[in-house]
Simulated scan of single mutants.
Amino acid sequence: MPAPKRPTSGTSRPSSTSKQQATLSFNHRVTKSVPKSAKKGLATPPSTAPSKQSPLAKHVASTSDQQDPADIDVEDEDVDVTKAQVEEAEAPEKTEAELRAEKVSDRQIDQYWRQLERERKTKRVHQGDLALAEKVLRYWDVSSQYGPCVGISRMKRWQRAERLGLNPPVEVLAVLMKEESRGAQGFEKAHMDEILNSTAVGST
């Protein structure tokens, strides 16, 4: 059987190098060709000739440009808002416990403290120069049944005990709210926390 004839060089397939795509060049900006008629239309500014309007359209446009004097008075009217009204609007709603604490008087707080004193066998010492509020708060600090007092403010500790159903005394919350309202300093931090921090600072 005769061997198959190979195609001549004239009919040979192009080499693989001729199939390769030409290298793209991004050095030149390529833009889309725009017809001259379109360029001429862009170059000419829009006509400023007044358009024909119906009498009704002119009347509507003229009345819309004029502002009602009543509207001007309403917009320019100054609103007198006092600082107390702004604070009242921004203040969060008080809880039921806070509402009960607001009704606690100084006399009730004094009776609460006297009741605690009667439960003791001996009289307290080294607290003669402390105010009643500080005595109540220090007793609150060492009341371990309501959780640890270190690393947490007295108000947050009371709220945590309330959430856990431990029934913390409302008199303590009343003292905290009274101290906050009169702008006292350092009442939120437990006395035990201050002692531990001062010891740690002194040891370094």
Results as ranks from 00 to 15, higher is better:
K103P: 11
D106K: 15
R154S: 05
W113V: 13
Q127R: 00
K83N: 06
E87Y: 06
Q127S: 04
A131E: 10
W113F: 10
L130C: 08
I72K: 07
V142N: 09
V142C: 09
I152Y: 00
E96W: 05
T95W: 04
E90W: 10
K83A: 00
A131V: 13
T122F: 13
R120C: 14
A97S: 14
E88D: 14
E87Q: 14
K94H: 07
E93L: 13
C149P: 06
Y112Q: 02
D80W: 00
E75I: 15
Y112E: 02
I152L: 03
L99F: 03
E88G: 12
K156M: 08
V150T: 01
T82R: 01
T95P: 08
D73R: 11
V150E: 04
D78P: 13
E87M: 13
R138I: 08
K83L: 06
P148T: 10
I152T: 00
E117P: 08
V104M: 12
I152H: 02
Q111A: 14
K156V: 02
A101R: 04
K103A: 15
Q85I: 07
P148R: 12
E87H: 13
R120E: 07
G128Q: 14
K156C: 03
L116T: 09
V81T: 07
D141Q: 00
D141Y: 00
S144D: 15
Y112D: 01
A97V: 11
R100Q: 05
D129M: 01
H126L: 10
Q108C: 12
D141E: 06
T122D: 09
A131D: 11
V79G: 06
E98W: 02
R118T: 14
M155V: 06
R114A: 06
V125N: 03
V74M: 10
L132F: 00
E119I: 10
K94Q: 12
K121C: 01
I109W: 00
E93T: 08
H126C: 06
A101T: 03
